[in-house]
Amino acid sequence: MTEGFFDVGLLHYLILALVLFIVGMLGVIVSRNMLRIVMSLLVVSIAVVINFLAFGSFCNSTLKYANIMCILITVMTVLQITGAFALFLKVYHANEYLDVEKIKDKEN
């Protein structure tokens, strides 16, 4: 872990993943538009994938496991997001907006 500024190592990738993770989580917390929340979740997913690949790439014999897990994560995320978009279309046609708080107010 003694890489200099121009020697990119595991720590650099982990810090990048951490920053992306925090930005994505911030997006999930502060956004009120459903589409933006889902896009923020994909940013979180990218951070997790970078984390896996960094561990896999910098540890011996684990890159193939990391690749398999990342493909699984990506496919699952895309499937979930596709389902979410289908639901959003229904919600938008029913309410004419995608604001989570307005929808919750309407439910109450």
């Binding site: 970078i50 690949l53 990342c70």
Partner: peptide, 21 residues
């Protein structure tokens, strides 16, 4: 992010994510 995956020797994953996402 696909470019970053490429830097991590995961070219297949990069291509896969770029096509799928």
């Amino acid at each position: 992010s696909s470019c970053i995956y490429g830097l991590l020797n995961a070219g297949f994953m990069a291509l896969f994510q770029f096509i799928l996402c």
